[in-house]
Design a protein around this nucleic acid. Structure first.
Lengths: 234, 234, 234, 234
DNA sequence: GATGAATGAGACTTCATTCAT
DNA sequence: GATGAATGAAGTCTCATTCAT
């Protein structure tokens, strides 16, 4: 009499439950009450996304239960459907929402004209602070784990995040090569080599954190030693 | 993800993956017939594992259906349970079975006394041929994706595979450092840095193979350029 | 007998039969709506228990299908699981629920100071009216049939029902013996002898009602003749 | 490609897997080898029935597994089908086989002309020795528990066993009444009253043997005290 | 005759999704 | 808007029965 469950395996496009962003501008129109309602709505949405990240990270997409997401967010199960069209939308919007603030800052770090070593040091800092040290690493884990089942999401992530990151890294490497700071073009052709240890750190600790944790900072510093061919103290 | 009911029965031991190996000697006694049955059993088991790898890779553990595994293996649903206790066991034994032949060869490659560059070249060849070019890469993807939900499996993989790989890589790097082939200890402290691009290649192509494939061979060669600080042609 | 699969999830507490009773007081606060929902819930629960009694009686625990229980209760299969953790819980709670109202009245009948014959006549009436004439006899049949597979249930029934019945019957017999209404202590030592024909009536009619029905009332009256050593009309 | 499972709930008549009894006469025809083969067959059949009684008693008809029956009988699962048409036939033949030797002796005990008290004492002895003290009590338990689902079996048991027992008990009671050994006709009208404590003992110990065992001998002796209105020692 | 691997219908349980309140 | 009871499709696992060896 009500309705059956949509299967995990036949993803169908759904109407986004809600316009991508309620636009802060509109809030001024009807003043406080409207504002309050919207603020409440945004907070709920955040709460759901946050809870969803926890649950999806802990169990994976298929095994995560919206019941648990709701409980963790402190709302009723049905409420999720006021904010997201379905489980899959929730997942995809989660990834997009976490990526959004990152995208804004992406092109920045390769812009200025500092020595390669300094740029890399700052990059490592940034990655440790903004990715590995935050829930963003969990999003990356999720994308790695679930991406193959969500081609649209993978494509989005590639286009909106990785492609831009690659462009910036490539520009960085290009300048370093031109200046003679590095002697090979490998990092220009494959900026992924610059980021590889970050992936390793995230994947490794996702699997082995409890049995053999990997010190991400030390790993990344070691990586810089290799790239910059720094001599170790004897 | 779902599963059958709590039974009234007293729990009894399950089809524990089958006795390790009925000893080739005994088979000679009664000859072919016994052998044939055993061979058939082994073949079935292989077929199930192969089908399972396909399905688990395509959908992930939770979303894969044993029905599909059976169909792909050309057997009936129930037959799976003659060879594996349940879905989880099938998954874990799949990973273990794929890891087994690898484990034997692991310590070999770091043994002899060749120049670092040659050793790395051979290592790259080995990885391309034996991992990235085979279904083993799919197993690694599976471990990365599902490992967090299967701590026992992650632990197994760490202990039986990665730990040994790390030891070998570390020995390699250690010798290279002592001979002055590299100037830094980073690769000794973090052999993961040597393997990082392999992880990246597997993860990247798992996600983006159709939209932006990454040439694993070129990537690994570039990585050697970086590590060995080779000069690029101008 | 069958049942779902061992899940990846961490096991979580189940729908533990529902909080004992939300306290009638609290319902007054928010009035009708809350009351209505609760009433509906209670009614559903009753309907499920009633349907379950029918199905378990007709087929036995193992062969009864929850599908049929649901259909008979006029609900969907899944709804059962909102009220009971699983098939076994449903069965056990069914027995407990049917026993509960009886337990309250159990100690009463042996309390007052009437002649043994009158007490027995009243007891016979009570048993015919409240047990043999109701579905309670079906519950007793179920316990006899399935009890050996549900030790916890058997224990519960012994402790909460039979033990109390036995105590009351023994007190009755004890008084009768002291007053000289009976000449032997057998009924004091084995109050089961007083109740034996009830068991026989239930078991007999459970098996042979259609081919050789046993008149329970006449049987019990005959039993009184024996116990009280009444002379038959010639 | 092979065959599905027959449901518990749509019992259909099957060809008896084998003529009721292999007739000892025929064995003489071909001499020893034939004899040996037949003996072996009979032994197998016995072993299966014995194992089946154990399993059916322990789990009930529906939950018992032929796999376990086979294992317990020391044979392969398929072998059961050489001796019995299906699970249901096995169950029914089990009950019939256990009843058979009893049936032969049933009319005997009421035949001779002894005092009622002596006849009852002998009857009690017989029941303790031949029923309660043997696996026959388990068969009775099985009939009580499963009979409602096997009308043909219930009918058989009523006709072949209980009806005859009732006739004999009634004759006994009739004579006792005529001789003035008892003053009431209740036992003539309801011979079940004579047997009631046996049923109680079997049912009670089936349920509560571990938590509150009932001394069957003492119970039956007490019953005689009641029936014969014997005075207890003060 | 005996075996036991294989089959596949069937039953329990889960959970995404809906909708009356 | 929010709730959470209800739905029912879907998936795992079991086991009676068959049949090639």
């Amino acid at each position: 009499m009500t309705g059956p469950a949509k299967s995990v395996r036949a993803p169908r496009p759904r109407a986004a439950a809600r316009p991508p962003a309620p636009a802060a501008v509109a809030t001024a129109v009807k003043g406080a009450p409207r504002n309050a309602r919207e603020a409440r709505g945004r907070a709920r949405r955040e709460a759901i996304l946050s809870a969803a990240l926890d649950e999806f990270s802990a169990r994976g997409f298929a095994a995560a239960r919206l019941d648990d997401v709701a409980r963790r967010a402190g709302i009723a199960k049905g409420t999720i459907y006021l904010y997201f069209a379905d489980k899959e939308s929730l997942f995809q919007e989660l990834v997009r929402a976490m990526a959004a603030p990152l995208i804004a800052n992406l092109e920045a770090f390769a812009g200025d004209d500092v020595p390669f070593a300094s740029a890399l040091e700052r990059l490592v800092d940034l990655l440790l602070r903004e990715v590995i040290g935050t829930r963003r690493k969990d999003v990356i884990r999720l994308i790695i784990a679930e991406g193959p089942r969500f081609p649209a999401l993978a494509q989005f992530y590639h286009r909106e995040v990785l492609e831009r990151v690659m462009v910036s890294l490539r520009r960085l490497a290009q300048r370093a090569y031109e200046r003679g700071e590095i002697r090979h073009r490998a990092l220009v052709d494959f900026p992924q080599l610059l980021a590889a240890p970050v992936v390793v750190a995230i994947v490794w600790n996702g699997l082995f954190e409890t049995i053999a944790p990997l010190d991400a900072r030390a790993l990344l510093q070691g990586h810089l030693d290799v790239i910059l061919d720094r001599r170790s103290e004897p």
